[in-house]
């Protein structure tokens, strides 16, 4: 955390948790998909579910999904922009277990059928925490450049990835690992103090047992 997480961001009102934080959750989801979505399914929980209409949380999430930053004056018109750009939106409300009151689950689908789903919470002051990607536990703040690596749970996989990072002089500031079953699908989320170069990401993508590695810039 730094001073600009407290005084900042410069944003469009009316609520940092329900507008700016929501836009950032949308931005991360869009970045993870890595292409233009044609469909967005948004599930809202807790205070998000109860007050989204009043705070414009739906507009902010959609704005993020469309790639708008938190200080973009078009946020208030994002639903119209989505219609124009051919993004189909479904919004549902309900209850999730053991999660922050300001939480959204977003599933984006691209034109080629590729999907990404994510659970993110807006934890105050526009700050966010992504807790799930494609159903698996992660811990991502969006405050640092990050890599999200889907891989097979096999010995030496983490070492191979971190060795490459060391080679490129990348310092890890946050590391999180989760897996479905032993030997099954696993996900590493790695946050760094410095930028990842695309070349490093390509090399990680070519490693044995890696299904995909996605680079996420600070949002």
């Amino acid at each position: 955390m730094n001073v600009f997480d407290i005084l900042g961001p410069v944003m469009i009102g009316p609520s940092s948790s329900h507008t700016a934080g929501a836009a950032r959750i949308g931005l991360v989801t869009r970045a993870l998909l890595g292409k233009t979505p044609v469909k967005a399914h948004i599930f809202l929980h807790g205070s998000f579910a109860k007050t989204y209409k009043g705070h414009g949380t739906d507009k902010a999430l959609v704005a993020g999904i469309l790639g708008m930053q938190t200080d973009d004056e078009r946020i208030r018109f994002s639903l119209d922009v989505a219609k124009k750009e051919g993004l189909e939106i479904q919004i549902e409300t309900g209850e999730l277990e053991d999660t922050h009151p300001n939480t959204a689950e977003i599933t984006l689908t691209a034109a080629d059928g590729e999907k990404v789903s994510l659970r993110g919470s807006s934890i105050g002051g526009g700050n966010i925490l992504i807790t799930r990607v494609n159903g698996m536990e992660v811990a991502l703040t969006g405050q640092n450049p990050a890599l999200i690596v889907l891989h097979k749970d096999a010995p030496g996989t983490i070492a191979a990835v971190t060795e490459l990072m060391a080679e490129y002089g990348v310092n890890i500031c946050n590391f999180h690992l989760a897996r479905e079953t032993k030997g099954g699908l696993a996900v590493m989320t790695i946050e760094s103090d410095s930028h990842f170069v695309p070349e490093l990401n390509e090399k990680i993508n070519r490693l044995e047992n890696i299904y995909s590695s996605t680079m996420l810039e600070r949002v």
Partner: peptide
Amino acid sequence: ELNASMGRIVAAPTAGSCGIV
């Protein structure tokens, strides 16, 4: 009031409390 009209403000620390600092 500017915040409530979807204007551009600085969260300080949040938008709901952006007028005080």
